[in-house]
Design a protein around this nucleic acid. Structure first.
Lengths: 195, 195
DNA sequence: GATGTACTGGTACGCTCGTACTAGTACATC
DNA sequence: GATGTACTAGTACGAGCGTACCAGTACATC
C-alpha cells in the first residue's frame, strides 16, 4: 500500500486529512509560542492554518485536546534539541566553556527561547502540563549528569532556567563571558581546603 | 430606617469609597496570584471583594487599569521584601550561607513565590508590564552589589530566578544544602592561579 | 428639612468564545 | 454509474465577557 505522496509539495487542499490535521496542530503550536496558551481559540487556529472553523473541531474533540497536542509538538522539538546538546557536550568532554557556548547560542535564537518558555507558562497555568514542561529541565539534568555529579547538574539546569527567564524579560541577553564565568564556577569542584 | 451595621469590623459596607477601592485592588491581586492575569474578570473581582459589579467599573475605567494597579500592589510588596533581604544581608556581611538561607526561606512560602511569579507571567504576556516585573530582578542585583561585584550579583540573581521557576514547576523545592553549594560557588572568586 | 452629589446596585448591549448541527461534496468500493 | 462514507463549509446557540447605563440612596451642606 504505497502512500505515494507524489511530487506535490504538501497537497493540503483537498482530501488529505493527515496533512490537514498536522497543519492545524502546527498552527496551534505557532500561536501558542507567539501569543500564549490563553489566546488560543478555534477560530484563530483555523485562520492561521487556512482551514475552516469546523476542521479544528472535527479533528480534535475539544480545544484542550488540540492545545495539548500542540504543546506535545513543542516538547518533542525540545527532545531533539537536547539530543544535540548531549552530542556537542560529549564531543568536548563536558568543558564548561562549551556548555556556556551552547547556552549562549540558545539565547541567540529568540524563537526557541520563546517556544520553551511557552511550555513553562502553560504548565504554570495548567498543572496537568507540568510533566511536559519538565522534559526540558529533567532532560538537561540527565544530559549534564554524564559529565558532572547530580547536584552540579541540577544547579546548572537551574541556572539555565534563570538565564532563559532573563532573556524573556530583558532586551539584551547575558553575554558569553558572564555565562561562562557562572557555568565555570558552578562546575568547579568544591575545594575542600577550608576545614 | 437606620441601617445599623452596628459592630461591623471594618465598616466597608456603606460610604467608604477608599476602603472599597482598596478591597477591590486587593481582591484583584489575590486572584492574579491564584489564577493568573488571564482569568481576571470584573465579575470575579467583584465576587471576591464582596462588592457589586458596578463598583469595579466605577473606580477603574477599565479592566486593564484595575489589573495594573493590582500588579503594582504586588510589586510594592516585593520592594518591602527586598528591603528585608538587604537588611539581613548587611547584618551578616554577605555570607553565602546567609544568602542561601534567605533564598531557601523564600521558597518555603509558596504564596510569595506564586505572587512574584505572577508578575513575571504577566510581564511576558503584556510587555508594558516588564518594568514592574524587573523590580525584583534589578532590585536583587542592586542589593547583592553591596557585597559582591556586579557580575557576580547578576549571576546570583539569575540563579535565584531559576530557583523560583524550579519551585513553581516541582512539588519539592531545592534543599538548603544544594542552594548553599551553588550560591557559594557563584560567590567564590575566580582563582586566577590557572593562566 | 431640602437639595446636590457621591456612590451603589441591577440590568442591558454587543461581542467572542467553544461547541453542535446540518447540509453538501468527492472519493473508494462495488 | 450507484452508493456509502469520510470529510468540508457554513451557520447557530448558549455562555461569559467588558462596558455602559439608569434608577435609586445616603450623606454633606445649607
Amino acid at each position: 500500500m504505497d502512500v505515494g505522496a507524489g511530487s506535490a509539495p504538501i497537497e493540503r487542499s483537498r482530501r488529505n486529512p493527515e496533512g490537514r490535521r498536522r497543519a492545524i496542530v502546527e498552527a496551534a503550536a505557532a500561536l501558542i509560542v507567539e501569543d500564549g496558551l490563553t489566546d488560543l481559540t478555534h477560530r484563530r487556529v483555523a485562520a492561521r492554518a487556512g482551514v475552516s472553523l469546523s476542521a479544528t473541531t472535527y479533528y480534535f474533540s475539544s480545544l484542550e485536546e488540540l492545545s495539548e497536542e500542540a504543546l506535545r509538538l513543542l516538547a518533542d522539538r525540545i527532545d531533539t534539541e537536547l539530543a544535540a546538546v548531549a552530542e556537542t557536550l560529549a564531543a568536548h568532554g563536558g568543558d564548561p566553556a562549551v556548555l556556556a557556548g551552547i547556552l549562549h547560542g540558545y539565547l541567540l535564537e529568540p524563537m526557541r527561547v520563546q517556544a520553551d518558555t511557552a511550555l513553562y507558562l502553560a504548565a504554570t497555568q495548567r498543572p496537568a502540563l507540568r510533566p511536559l514542561a519538565l522534559r526540558w529541565f529533567d532532560g538537561l539534568v540527565e544530559v549534564l549528569s554524564n559529565h558532572v555529579d547530580a547536584g552540579t547538574a541540577t544547579a546548572l539546569a537551574v541556572y539555565a532556567d534563570g538565564v532563559t527567564v532573563h532573556a524573556m524579560l530583558h532586551d539584551e541577553i547575558l553575554d558569553l563571558a558572564a555565562i561562562t564565568r557562572a557555568v565555570t564556577a558552578l562546575m568547579r569542584p568544591d575545594d575542600g581546603s577550608r576545614r
